[in-house]
């Protein structure tokens, strides 16, 4: 098993190794350096369940979190969202589109050396709050911004 995994890493995406790895159920070999995908959080259909899966029992509303997103998004397929956290020791930033079928869009773990800023583009089915949950020093902080969507992007 170990040998196989080494080959897999060495070839880093070679089609042959991929097939072998997949057959051996080693699809997660890539997680040698990446955190395992948080299945329960990403498959939650309610914001409360996402919050629970992230381990956030209580959320503290914070003005130290800035969400940069348009007030009105004409195309729900690409809504630019940037989150900046000024809370010291920010460990992770999660982006949630509350009315999406699966609300959790992305979760970013920030390591020492990384700045507590992420920017990306998400899909939004309809108008909803975009919520950021920031984990810092084991506590969870949150902020939200409403984005109006004129054409949904989850078709």
């Amino acid at each position: 098993m170990k040998q196989l995994r080494r080959n897999f890493l060495k070839l880093s995406g070679g089609a042959g190794a991929m097939a072998v790895a997949a057959a051996a159920g080693l699809l997660k070999a890539g997680s040698a350096w990446a955190a395992p995908w948080n299945k329960s959080a990403f498959e939650s259909k309610a914001v409360a369940d996402v919050q629970k899966s992230l381990g956030a029992a209580t959320l503290i509303e914070s003005k130290e979190i800035t969400i940069t997103a348009p007030d009105i998004a004409e195309n729900g397929a690409t809504v630019p969202v940037a989150v900046t956290s000024k809370i010291p020791n920010t460990q992770s930033i999660s982006i949630i589109a509350e009315n999406n079928p699966f609300p959790l869009a992305a979760s970013f773990d920030i390591m020492p050396g990384g700045d507590s800023y992420v920017s990306t583009r998400i899909k939004m089915g309809k108008t909803s709050d975009v919520r950021a949950i920031v984990k810092a020093d084991g506590k969870f902080y949150t902020a939200a911004k409403e984005v109006k969507v004129t054409v949904g992007g989850c078709g």
Partner: peptide, 14 residues
Amino acid sequence: KTVLDAQWSQAISQ
């Protein structure tokens, strides 16, 4: 050295 480790869902744009 890893500085960002992100997990994404299908809600990220094309």
